[in-house]
Design a protein around this nucleic acid. Structure first.
Lengths: 229, 229
DNA sequence: AGTGAAGGTCACAGGGCTGTGACCGAGCGT
DNA sequence: ACGCTCGGTCACAGCCCTGTGACCTTCACT
């Protein structure tokens, strides 16, 4: 017997939480609630969810910001709840990686059916993609230069992967911190980042790619395409 | 410009190595040679190959045994070289996870074209499968019980995955050592395995699955289906 | 019941990873 | 040229992972 899908529902209004969780449960979901982004994030990191239902308007930290954080580490479906007038929110939401949205007020049945449809489509996690950058290839579990494995820790690999995915464009400190540590910028963050990237550079240097990573002062770092100075 | 595919060619006959590597290079492959299983394994672990061409008859350690070791950690295409009379070898080779075979003597062009075809089909690594075992779900990067993440190291996760993939059947010490450490049985192996599985059991116990892993005396361990005693 | 082998438990030690703080060099603005 | 900020380098310390060895418990055989 299959276990029910588990949804994380994030909204600061208790009545809305009740409506959403009830609608989902009539469709066979189990659900856990959070009333702000921080507690939602904490729950998300400790349990495995099949769906996240997320109000855009959250206190202190935007629902979209939470959506981005989630997207950095997971392909879990995200369903946004937006206000009727929030056209820009809806566009921003899809750009932040949400899969769908429902506009308030909504019929609970519609939400439940949309949730069910999204989860049904999420049958298999997408195949991990290998990023190619000149002689550098960065997969999900390892990276190589000219076919030779780099000796990198998991943290270092995440950072290198983020740089490679930018296709030669600069990546901000903030994005790198998000990718490497799943945190927003704060004190000490850049110091950790400096050292971690130093270690990645050493590994690249050891396999014949010195000076691959370049600092962009005040912005972040980049992995320029080969042949560019 | 795309880099050439890199092949690992394993054969104990120098003349055969020359024939194979020359044939592959005419098809645009780069190649590295090994004359026995151990040196091949060492090369394989340190570089990333797009293809392995593997003679079945190797000194000291069978080519099939090497094929199995490779398959434990990689989906890289494997092309076997077999003797004309080796029907059972060929069947055993496919069962060991090889993708294709070429029978000696062979036309170098045929080998090259088969190699090219295999590599062309290997476009994307298969999506990682999540194994479900009652309330336990074991993915490639994490495992959960009732949706709650288990705190496991990479080694522990590999072992749990191996047990879960056996669908309630016992898994031998040898298979567990292969999955966890990529080694054959030797002195001290079972001691490490005992301790590592002890740590996995502790984690399962902490999330509500005590006694999940059961020893099968003299054979190995199993993860029986729930409801069986 | 006794014995020996196999499995379970546990703590210790070593190595690797990671965050931190200090120091030095480079770059930019004045 | 100078000063300040930002980036690079490095070593240290703490934590986690892992292999090992010792000891205890359990099980199977006689």
């Amino acid at each position: 017997m299959e276990h029910p899908h588990l949804a994380l529902v994030v909204d600061d209004e208790p009545q809305m939480l009740d409506i959403v969780t009830f609608a989902l449960e009539t469709q066979g979901f189990a659900s856990v609630s959070a009333k702000d982004a921080e507690s939602a994030w904490s729950l998300f990191r400790n349990r495995r969810f099949d769906l996240v239902v997320l109000d855009v308007m959250l206190p202190q930290s935007s629902g979209l910001s939470l959506c981005r954080r989630i997207r950095e580490v997971s392909a879990v479906p995200v369903l946004l709840l937006t206000a009727k007038s929030g056209v820009q929110d809806r566009i921003a939401g899809l750009e932040a990686g949400a899969d769908d949205y429902v506009t308030k007020p909504f019929h609970p049945r519609e939400l439940a059916l949309r949730a069910e449809a999204i989860v049904r489509r999420t049958a298999v996690a997408p195949a991990p993609v290998e990023l190619v950058h000149g002689p550098l290839r960065v997969g999900q579990d390892a990276a190589t230069v000219h076919g030779r494995y780099l000796h990198l820790s998991a943290l270092e690999l995440r950072l290198l992967r983020r740089l490679a995915s930018a296709q030669g464009q600069p990546v901000s400190f903030r994005d790198l911190l998000l990718s490497g540590w799943q945190i927003d910028e704060g004190p000490g963050g850049r110091e950790m980042l400096k050292t971690a990237l130093y270690r990645v550079r050493k590994a690249l240097h050891g396999e014949g790619m010195p000076r691959a990573i370049r600092a962009v002062r005040g912005v972040g770092y980049e992995l320029p395409h080969p042949g560019r100075d």
